[in-house]
Amino acid sequence: MNAPEPFLGVTEHTPVRHHILSVLVENKAGVLSRVAGLFARRGFNIYSLAVAPAESSAKFSRITMVVDAETTPLEQIVEQLDKLVNVVAITDIAPKDAVERELLLATIRTEVNSRTPLSDVVANSGAAIVDVDAHSITVMLAGTPKACDLLEAQLEEFDTIELHRTGRVAVPRLGTSASA
């Protein structure tokens, strides 16, 4: 690996040569399995994956996946994906051309009288407290993967019970998308 190319949204678990593929698929049973199976049998790596109904029609879903373009040429990943009959369109978004967001939810054990440090972290990171009880607080951040990384790092000082991230979704910045 040579000099890493700088871009927004580096996460700890993501090496520098990742790419975001926004994949429009038919909303049919087993389609996610076909996509995941293709990656498994061809030895392609997926870092994160998010699926939801697509904007245009109930017939389609959108899979946003972060793939490793270091171990396999991106061209091979895109072309093999494109051969799946249920895959309708693939948009390859270079990280620098992407607007990316991710959701983080974390539940932290904390007693009522000692919540100030956590409240500060939450306030400074732009997160929100979404659930509270006597012994814990649940915080949420919807932000860039980098902001989620930062918050995750800061929460290490606390007694975190659970922390989940959704994996990112992304749209191309206007005028920068390339379709396959």
């Binding site: 049973a29 087993g30 399995s33 076909r34 199976g37 293709l38 049998r41 009959v85």
Partner: peptide
Amino acid sequence: ITGITQGITKHNFL
């Protein structure tokens, strides 16, 4: 069988 043959068919239908 559609699961089994996913990787060895061009496509399959249930």
